[in-house]
Design a protein around this nucleic acid. Structure first.
Length: 479
RNA sequence: GGCGGCGUGGCCAAGUGGUAAGGCAAGGGAUUGCAAAUCCCUCAUCCCCAGUUCGAUUCUGGGCGCCGCCUCCA
């Protein structure tokens, strides 16, 4: 099935076509490691993971790069702003590099907890200063950038496509400027490639002086080129990156290399909390730990994110997270029941049930191929569940096919937490033991020996065995 | 002021020019020694107005409301 994605640049859905057959190179704007990433950040990273899984599912050899911004960009792009990392460091009374270290570690732990497949490269901005300087020199040489003292700015007027991605016009940008005009710039919309400030802690000695540091956008141009080449397939980020960040990246890279930079731009919409933007003052900037502290798995959050399309705003509340958790639990439970059905072999396969699985599989794949419509794909799983449950216990062929579909869905969406799996498998009771206990329970219940019956029930429950007292007898599966 | 998105049942969330997938919650029922789990059933006319059309939730225009970007931010 043909993959189709919405391209922010063309503003339409396009058939996906890699530059090099069978291979996909993609870049994701990663976290700024000066503060513990919050759940909103992870929506974008979860999206990158989804993309990776889908592309690999289609057999592409994917090279994935996500940068870590460890250079504290200015709080204020206009001029002598304060450096974010340094400001945080002063607040914490530590060295900025220590913050980078601490936050980076938390970031990778979170990714792991969310079941994100690691990217192939996680380059840091601070390790690529020379690559950035090289691009800036080329831009100056080609007349796209100019130096004022030890600062360097990109000359927007030399790049006619500036504004194409975001839909902004340079004139409108100027009209809407809320910042003080930086007199150094030739044009108010020009942006910094390199800045200098002796007071900075994080600074580098380069051809532009000894107290310099990179502008906000140049790092991604430099690292993307280094790991993926001058022209690659996909670049993603949050919606806030569209302007100015990605707009500037395009200008820098294309002006310097005189060729196309990225074929496909994809942006995720923000996660909202309590119906609006999360904010510290409202106290709703949650980290993954906050969710875990309330008894949720990071995978529940992952599921919550996937239940919404990546290009729509998704709201987060505890109630919504609870709904996601319950929903996912139902899927986990269903898989266990299917496994039990395989084991018992008591169900009957019919052409209808087999066809239902095949149909669900097709709907699932079609939904994913259609610009990653994960909500619809997930719904296909539940629709199948309902159909199969209606006809009773699934036959082994049906169950086998349904489990295969769930595994397929899991490989793309990441539904089932591996750790939970281990717990179940380590259950102390063998199938035979479970059967024996259930048989005994039936006997003592017939004898109205409720004490022993409840004892067995509790023992089974402790071992992670779920009992279902149905009209057709007792069914069981591992929780 | 400029650019963009959204408005579907209590809460989430797909979707189509021909009378609305799915999940959670809720209510009723079955089952049960009690409970859990399970199963069955019930639960929307798609923000408002006008237009196009045989027919619009889906297209067009207007209105109202909400959200985001334009300044660090996924």
């Amino acid at each position: 099935m043909e993959l189709r994605f919405y391209n922010s640049y063309s503003r339409q859905i396009e058939a996906f076509q890699p530059i090099e057959p069978g291979k996909v190179r993609m870049y994701h704007c990663g976290p700024t490691v000066y503060q513990r990433p919050h759940i909103g950040n992870y929506r974008a990273f979860l999206f990158a993971d989804l993309l990776r899984r889908v592309l690999e599912g289609y057999g592409y050899e994917v090279t994935q790069v996500m940068n870590l911004t460890d250079v504290g960009h200015l709080l204020n792009d206009a001029d002598e702003g304060e450096d974010k990392l340094e400001a945080q460091a002063r607040k914490d009374k530590v060295d900025p590099w220590q913050i980078v270290e601490t936050v980076s570690r938390a970031f990778f732990q979170d990714l792991d907890a969310l079941g994100v497949i690691p990217a192939h490269h996680y380059p840091c901005a601070s390790d690529h200063i020379s690559e950035m300087v090289a691009i800036i020199e080329v831009l100056i040489e080609k007349g796209h950038a100019y130096r004022v003292g030890d600062n360097v700015y990109f000359d927007v007027s030399t790049f006619s496509r500036y504004g194409q991605l975001s839909g902004n016009k340079v004139e409108d940008l100027v009209a809407g400027l809320r910042l003080e005009i930086n007199e150094e710039k030739r044009h108010p919309a020009d942006f910094a490639l390199w800045k200098s400030d002796p007071a900075h802690i994080m600074k580098w000695d380069t051809v532009f002086g000894e107290h310099g540091f990179p502008g906000w956008h140049i790092e991604c141009s430099a690292m993307a080129e280094k790991y993926l080449g001058k022209h690659f397939d996909i670049h993603t980020g949050g919606e806030d990156n569209v302007f100015p960040h990605h707009e500037c990246e395009i200008a820098q890279s294309e002006a310097a290399n005189e060729q196309a930079f990225v074929n496909l731009w994809m942006h995720t919409r923000f996660l909202q909390v309590d119906g609006g933007k999360m904010s510290k003052s409202l106290g709703n900037v949650y980290s993954l730990d906050d969710l875990v502290a309330r008894g949720f798995s990071p995978w529940d959050y992952r599921f919550l994110v996937l239940r919404g399309h990546y290009r729509t705003q998704v709201n987060f509340t505890w109630e919504i997270l609870r709904g996601a958790k319950e929903s996912r639990a139902k899927l986990i439970d269903w898989r266990s029941r299917l496994r039990a059905a395989m084991r018992s072999g008591g169900g009957v396969d019919t052409p209808a049930t087999i066809d239902a699985v095949t149909a669900a599989h097709e709907v699932f794949d079609a939904a994913i191929a259609d610009d990653l419509n994960t909500p619809e794909a997930i719904a296909a799983l539940f629709t199948l569940r309902n159909k199969l449950v209606q006809v009773g216990e699934a036959g082994s062929r049906t169950a086998d096919a349904a489990i295969a579909l769930l595994d397929h869905a899991d490989s793309i969406l990441g539904l089932f937490e591996p750790a939970a799996e281990v717990n179940v498998d380590s259950g102390a009771l063998s199938d035979d033991q479970v059967e024996a206990l259930i048989a005994e329970r039936a006997e003592v219940r017939a004898a109205k020996n409720w004490a022993r019956a409840d004892e067995i029930r509790d023992a089974l429950q402790t071992a992670g065995i779920v009992l279902e007292d149905t009209a057709s007898g007792v069914h069981w599966h591992r929780g």
